[in-house]
């Protein structure tokens, strides 16, 4: 993949004795939405900061838009858009000024920035709030403004670090819709998230990161097919009459024991439920669902993503 927008080989990042990223290989193709999935501390944000040219790499090679971030930082940053994990909007400026001034940092002409700001306000559904200060906006609005701001330079590559963390469901769906539109316009996106549903919704391809390394790579469907079963049966028992995992194991392909429930991996959840009850284990509640990336992650790392 020589036309990759981002290419990393053996990429490492250490902070003193702590190694946040421990040698990863990544290729991001033009037009795709690429995900870094993993729990807090997996090394996702460090990787994103290296790609954004604001964090020098400790070892390995990295090319972004065909250039070396260590040499061409400003030229690369001129062509990418960044949505950081925490909104860092300019609280001393109004909503519109946030877009206009930010555009000026890219050296864009004042007239162009003015038109672009109006267009982006529309895109972020913030036209009515253009004159307000940032402080007056809700969390979802601030996030939309941050995303709009990242588009002011018409970036070829958009970096989104945990784009919907802390948002209510409605705000998340609105954001996903906006990101989907950008994808259709051909904007390449790199997304980090610890939400499985988000990764499944947004990403064409993703890597699962854990402890600074890549544990698996593929499309969401591939990963589920490779590392999980079609269905999952979730069982909760009365703490007094809780069976052991070993006792349940002969009814499913695999059993995971969590503090509050068991996950039984199986092709047919309903049938497994019947088997378990037939064997004399009566759960307080049960649920059959399709396998998700959450299960892939559990399988790969032995841990849940969101504790």
């Amino acid at each position: 993949m020589s036309d990759a927008l981002v290419q990393a080989r053996g990429l490492r990042k250490s902070f003193g004795a702590v190694e946040a990223v421990r040698g990863i290989d990544v290729d991001v193709a033009p037009g795709e939405v690429f995900g870094f999935l993993g729990p807090n501390g997996a090394g996702k944000s460090s990787t994103m900061r290296m790609i954004a040219c604001v964090s020098p790499r400790s070892a390995g090679t990295l090319s972004v838009l065909g250039m070396d971030p260590g040499v061409d930082g400003p030229r690369i940053r001129a062509r990418i858009g960044v949505v950081p994990q925490l909104d860092n909007l300019d609280a001393e400026l109004s909503v519109r000024e946030n877009l206009e001034i930010y555009g000026r940092y890219f050296g864009l002409p004042r007239r162009h920035v003015k038109e672009k700001a109006a267009e982006l306000l529309e895109f972020a559904q913030l036209t009515e709030r253009a004159g307000d200060t940032v402080e007056e906006l809700s969390g979802g609005m601030k996030r939309r403004l941050t995303i709009a701001r990242s588009l002011v330079n018409d970036p070829e590559l958009l970096l989104l670090d945990e784009p919907t963390t802390g948002l209510d469901p409605q705000a998340r769906h609105l954001l996903w819709d906006r990101l989907y539109r950008l994808k259709r316009e051909g904007v390449t996106q790199i997304v980090t998230t610890h939400y499985m549903d988000e990764a499944e919704q947004l990403c064409d391809r993703l890597v699962v990161m854990d402890g600074g390394v890549i544990a698996a790579e593929g499309s969401p469907a591939e990963l589920i097919g490779r590392y999980s079963t079609r269905e999952v049966l979730e069982l909760r028992f009365d703490p007094e009459h809780r069976p052991t995992a070993e006792a349940l194991e002969r009814h499913a392909e695999r059993v995971e024991e969590l503090p509050d429930r068991f996950l039984l991996y199986t092709v047919d959840g309903e049938r497994t439920h019947g088997d378990v009850v037939g064997a004399g284990f009566v759960p307080l509640s049960s649920l059959v669902r399709r396998s998700s990336l959450e299960d892939v992650f559990l399988r790969l790392t032995g841990r849940t993503l969101v504790d």
Partner: peptide, 14 residues
């Protein structure tokens, strides 16, 4: 606190 400079460094500014 405002992390203002972080946002500026995402642009060509150094």
């Amino acid at each position: 606190y405002a992390r203002l400079y972080d946002s500026m460094l995402a642009t060509p500014l150094g």
